[in-house]
Structure formats: structure tokens, C-alpha cells
């Protein structure tokens, strides 16, 4: 099993940390992982994206142009990454702020209104974990016990009190998915 994932959105949405938590959970479950961020000009404001690969085997290229799954959180990322999903692959997006919805006919598409739900529940800090929950519902790459361990490892000790809130957000996300197009 190898899953090649792109997570893309605005800086500050928790794109990189979502990827890191997913990758660290993979490490805890004894998977091979790689996490390759966009760094540089775009990191200093504007868009941010990260390629995460989780595999049972040694990972070859950490840098990819096509993906099994795309998690898309803003319009610029939709424009850039919709076309990079492999045929039959998965695209999850938060429609908040999206003006041009995905048009591909050969991929599975789900929406997740995570931004709205997060602000409704006063959980805007764990918006990214709501999205991650939605993704893990469709692609159960890591079991919840390993996600817990991944959170323990990814978050500094002073933030460990927030882990239950993060895990709650993951559960919320699992029930927030809406199928847009299922092949």
C-alpha cells in the first residue's frame, strides 16, 4: 500500500501541521512516511502545500506531480492541484471561498464544510483536524490509537491538553463529508 497525498491551502490554515500529524501517526503505526513542504516565497504568506506519502514500502520520490488524494482548501490550490489527481483518485475540498468547483469526471469528489463547522462550534483552531477526520473516514490509513500517538509526538508538551479537542475535531470531520461525485 502506498498513498500519495497533496494537502494545499492558505498559510495559517494548518496545512503543514495536518500533514505532519498524519505523517507522524504513520510513523507510530510503523509505516514509511515522507513529508515534503513547499518552502520559500509562498511559505511567507499566501499558499502553502505539502506532499505526504504513507507506504508499507521504502518511499522513492518524495516530490511528485500526480497524487492519489488531494485535500484542497482554497481556490488557488484547486486551480493548481485538481488536475494532478490520478484518474480514479480522491479530491476533498472545503467549499468555503471556492468560486470554481471541481469539474473532473474521472475522480471521486467530496466536500467538507469544515471552516463553517469550526466557526459554529468555536473550534477554528482545529479546523485542519476536522478536514483530516474527513480524509481518514475515506482513507483509513492510520488507526485512531496511532493518530493519538501521532498527536502526542507532533504537538509540543505544552499543547498536550488540547489533544482531546483535536480528536473530537477528527470525529466531527468524519460525519461532515458530502459526496459530490462518487465513481
Amino acid at each position: 500500500m502506498t498513498e500519495e497525498i497533496i494537502i494545499a491551502g492558505f498559510g495559517g490554515q494548518g496545512v503543514l501541521s495536518m500533514g505532519k500529524i498524519l505523517a507522524y501517526s504513520g510513523v507510530m503505526q510503523n509505516k514509511e512516511v515522507s513529508w515534503m513542504p513547499s518552502y520559500g516565497p509562498e511559505m511567507r504568506g499566501g499558499t502553502a502545500n505539502v506532499t505526504v506519502i504513507i507506504s508499507d514500502e521504502r518511499i522513492s520520490s518524495p516530490s511528485l506531480n500526480t497524487f492519489d488524494s488531494a485535500i484542497i482548501l482554497n481556490q488557488q490550490s484547486m486551480d493548481k492541484f485538481e488536475k494532478t489527481v490520478k484518474p480514479g483518485g480522491l479530491l476533498i475540498y472545503d467549499p468555503n471561498g471556492i468560486t470554481r468547483h471541481p469539474v473532473r469526471k474521472d475522480i471521486n469528489i467530496y466536500s467538507i464544510e469544515a471552516a463553517d463547522e469550526a466557526s459554529k462550534l468555536g473550534l477554528s483552531k482545529v479546523f485542519n483536524m476536522i478536514v483530516l477526520g474527513g480524509f481518514l473516514k475515506l482513507k483509513p490509513l492510520v488507526a485512531s490509537e496511532f493518530l493519538h500517538k501521532g498527536l502526542l509526538k507532533s504537538l509540543p508538551a505544552r499543547h498536550h491538553a488540547l489533544i482531546p479537542e483535536n480528536e473530537k475535531a477528527v470525529e466531527i470531520g468524519k460525519n461532515l463529508l458530502k459526496p459530490v461525485q462518487v465513481l
Binding site: 514509511e32 512516511v33 515522507s34 515534503m36 518524495p62
Partner: peptide, 10 residues
């Protein structure tokens, strides 16, 4: 190189 420096792996 910058990629091997910036990326995270196990």
C-alpha cells in the same frame, strides 16, 4: 540539497 534538508521522514 534544500529538499532533503526541508522534508520530514522517519
Amino acid at each position: 540539497d534544500g529538499a532533503v534538508g526541508q522534508m520530514m521522514e522517519k
